[in-house]
Design a protein around this nucleic acid. Structure first.
Lengths: 172, 172
DNA sequence: GCCCCGATCTTTACACTGTCAAGATTCGGT
DNA sequence: ACCGAATCTTGACAGTGTAAAGATCGGGGC
């Protein structure tokens, strides 16, 4: 807080006239992060222009690449200070809209492939989200080794893993 | 730190004679968490006693259930205070041994199914880890909704998602 | 022109935190 | 009995988040 105020060249209490407390400021930063994430996913989808399956994969890769490129921001977005989104509806909305991109692509893919069960579509989206989220988290935690913090590694790994999951979800 | 000392009924500086600093204490707690996690995975595997595929799933479910049952500990295990494991080899070892359980089961399953490519086995294990890790994280962050913090929900969800991934990994 | 209001910022103060430095206590081994 | 190591304490310091009160300033209505 005080460091932020210093960097902005104001007194240490100035930020409190714009944010209720530390958590509120963090929540605002996190919300901005979710908007950036959504934007990068959309841009990557648009740039690739393949079929539904390809676009689904690309969005997942964008998710992981975003995390690796902005690890601190990503941690703020999913940190414990941000855990109860109930107090911060703006944050909740931004997170939902980011997830909606992934969910939408999964559904397009399911439609293209001809899967019947509409009920399971949300679960499929959540599974896909969980997979890319896990990859992102373990990469930035260095749990896959130091080289996993390089975007190229993360991108390659995300490509393979999302392909495997997509195959499994389509089949029986 | 001071609260910990208070709870132990000692002065606020006593812990510093057992741990170098705050991060070292946190790392020790995290290492203990990884040992607990490994233990619970092993117990669940032993209790179910199915084939390799079933045991693989069960270990993943144990992972998620552990996270939901001990969300604060789980967050410490993967928090930013713990991010650079290079300073804390004990923590690194404990984490590796926990992951080794999952990896071992994946390889048993791959052998049972007859997959040839040994090279990909590590990637399969990492993908499986990422999936259950993502589920765990999103559950305890409340990102799947409040009911996802109940172990039963997490268990059910983990069962479905791991099944889908396993199918996808086996196929082409 | 004057006044008031709201927005914005500052100053001061308080309880709390992690950590350093120096001294006290306890206790097993020689 | 005594030494040294292990363990704990007291006191201090800089830094933190935040509550309370007051300062400054620009614009709109009389």
């Amino acid at each position: 807080m005080r460091a932020i105020a210093r960097r902005a060249g104001v007194s240490h209490m100035a930020p409190y006239h714009h944010f209720a407390d530390k958590r509120a400021l963090i929540a605002a930063v996190a919300a901005e992060g979710f908007r950036m994430l959504r934007q990068e996913m959309l841009e990557r989808i648009e740039a690739c222009g393949g079929d539904a399956r390809t676009r689904f994969r690309e969005s997942g890769i964008a998710y992981v690449v975003f995390a690796v490129k902005h690890p601190n921001l990503f941690r703020v977005m999913f940190g414990e200070e941000t855990a109860d989104t109930s107090e911060h509806p703006e944050l909740k909305a931004a997170a939902s809209q980011a997830f909606a991109v992934l969910q939408g692509l999964v559904e397009q893919d399911q439609v293209a492939v001809g899967t019947r069960d509409d009920r399971d579509r949300e679960k499929v989206g959540l599974s896909a989200w969980a997979l890319v989220h896990g990859i992102a988290m373990l990469c930035i935690d260095g749990q896959f080794g130091p080289e996993a913090r390089r975007p190229e590694y993360a991108e390659k790994f995300a490509y393979e893993a999302t392909g495997a999951l997509a195959r499994g979800l389509r089949g029986g």
